[in-house]
């Protein structure tokens, strides 16, 4: 545990994230226009700080909130429709979820256009299992006569689903509770596996064992990596190698430090 937390810290510092001891890191993802910043503001109040992502001209907002005596550092990711990483914003969001190893990733969804929004949620759930869905704008959905079976959705997705109307301050305490439960490991989550067409599943079955041989498995989901190989996302593969060496290099250094 000690070693992995050191390497987590290194990876996070690489993203300009500095955590205090025992502070949990929460990533906040979502499409544009879903009230993500309202959720962010509602959770952190004035305890926030804005800047840019290291080396990028993309906004990076971070904030802190405390719940049940635990401190949470929340990182607002760029609003994106996808994290298949074709733009800088998508790459930042994906790399942070992938390499920043957040303790929980909150995905904010617009309850009035769930189909489009679930696209992102499903993509995030392929990378990390520690996901909490914030189903926002339920007040707007009600106005539009859209009724959603929250329990059914939660069961289907296998991760906590919290209905919220962040602008009205509804559901935010529940959201904190679920983040706390998942972040501290009290609640086990089992995200739904996305089903692919037979030809893709076949190709995946052939690739996954070989990816497992690479020994990246401990913190990257081999199925997700296999999908990126099929995508032809060479940049990600190179990124993985770079981040792994960063991680390996740093844990080596820390061993030296301990020895001294």
């Amino acid at each position: 545990m000690g070693d992995s937390s050191v390497s987590h810290r290194v990876l996070r510092e690489h993203f300009g994230i500095n955590t205090k001891e025992n502070q949990k890191v929460i990533a906040l993802a979502g499409n544009p226009n879903v009230g993500k910043s309202t959720v962010f503001n509602a959770l952190t109040g004035l305890r926030q700080h804005t800047g840019n992502w290291p080396g990028k001209t993309v906004d990076n907002a971070q904030g802190i909130f405390t719940y049940k005596n635990n401190s949470f550092l929340i990182v607002d990711l760029p609003g994106t429709y996808s994290i298949l990483a074709r733009t800088v914003e998508e790459e930042i969001a994906r790399d942070f979820i992938c390499f920043g190893q957040p303790d929980v990733t909150i995905v904010v969804l617009d309850a009035t256009s769930l189909e489009r929004n679930l696209n992102l949620a499903l993509q995030v759930m392929e990378i990390t299992s520690r996901v909490v869905i914030c189903l926002n704008l339920i007040d707007e959905a009600k106005k539009k006569n859209i009724s959603i079976d929250y329990a059914g959705l939660e069961q289907e997705l296998g991760v906590p689903v919290v209905p919220t109307a962040a602008r009205e301050g509804i559901g935010l305490e529940d959201l904190k509770e679920e983040v706390y439960q998942v972040g501290l490991g009290f609640k086990k989550v089992q995200p739904r596996k996305t089903h692919y067409s037979p030809e893709i599943e076949e190709a995946l079955a052939a690739l996954i064992p070989k990816i497992q041989d690479l020994g990246w498995g401990e913190f990257l989901n081999p199925r997700w990596i296999a999908l990126r190989f099929l995508d032809g996302d060479e940049k990600l593969i190179d990124n993985i190698v770079r981040h792994l060496s960063l991680k390996a290099g740093q844990s080596l250094n820390s061993e030296v430090e301990i020895a001294l």
């Binding site: 429709y81 996808s82 298949l84 074709r86 733009t87 189909e115 489009r116 696209n119």
Partner: peptide, 11 residues
Amino acid sequence: GLLRRRIMDLG
């Protein structure tokens, strides 16, 4: 290219 991905990501 990018436009194709962008448009597909929008559904």
